[in-house]
């Protein structure tokens, strides 16, 4: 796996200027914006998605035929993509969180609790993003995956509308139902979110493995 990780990190050099720009935007947001979550979230999501781009780079010019003739396994390849995404996303998340924390402490502005919540809420979203994007990219490739994601998004919107309409027709108040749910502490909510994200990652990895094992190069 280490060899593949090195390859992907070396490929990142191609988009060096893009990442420098991302870093500058992140720093700019940290210094100028009061909104900690966007200052942490934006660079975290964008950079972690390079794991998806790296799959496109592998596929480009029939590169997979050679790549999978190297001494690697298909499951090792899939594991490496998740690791790569988590290292990138996690790394940028930690870095941008540290920058935001330093700026906040220096300014003595944001309450520590709010900052912690903003920071902690980004991580599960980033993991779920990877959990959705990696198998879609492996299955459909660069071009078709965009269409697949749009279709999936459309399906979710239609499903949401259908549920709302059905609730209206049955005279059920969904918001009142949500309000009646037992109140959870913030820590528990974040804990649950991380747990759900990890579960999503495990399911996603299973799907990716099934996809890659059926692939022909």
């Amino acid at each position: 796996m280490k060899g593949l990780l090195i390859k992907d990190f070396r490929l990142m050099k191609v988009q060096k200027s893009f990442f420098i720009l991302m870093f500058a935007v992140g720093i700019g947001q940290a210094l100028l914006s009061e909104d900690a979550s966007s200052a942490i979230g934006f660079p975290t999501f964008i950079v972690s998605l390079f794991a998806i781009s790296s799959i496109s780079y592998d596929e480009f010019d029939n590169g997979n035929a050679f790549l999978f003739s190297l001494p690697i396994t298909r499951s090792g390849y899939v594991a490496e993509k998740y690791c790569f995404g988590i290292i990138l996303g996690g790394g940028v998340w930690a870095l941008s969180s540290a920058v935001i924390a330093i700026v906040s402490i220096a300014r003595n502005t944001a309450p520590v609790m709010e900052l912690l919540v903003s920071t902690a809420s980004i991580l599960p979203i980033m993991l779920i993003l990877l959990a959705v994007m990696i198998p879609v990219q492996l299955k459909f490739g660069g071009e078709k995956s965009r269409v697949a994601l749009l279709v999936a998004y459309g399906c979710i919107v239609v499903l949401g509308l259908a549920v709302t309409k059905a609730a209206e027709m049955l005279d059920v108040d969904l918001f009142a139902m949500l309000d009646r749910l037992p109140v959870m502490s913030l820590g528990a909510v974040i804990g649950c979110a991380v747990l759900i994200a990890l579960l999503a990652l495990a399911v996603s990895m299973g799907i990716s493995l099934a996809v890659i094992k059926r692939k022909q190069f």
Binding site: I6, K7, R10, L11, D61, N62, G63, A65, S69
Partner: peptide, 26 residues
């Protein structure tokens, strides 16, 4: 097993210097 394909190889965006550590770890 060493493999060569006419129409497939390491990504064209890499350099020889880039592939040395990759091969060393594979």
């Amino acid at each position: 097993i060493g493999v060569v394909f006419a129409d497939s190889g390491f990504s064209g965006y890499l350099t020889v210097s880039d592939i040395v550590p990759v091969l060393a770890n594979l």
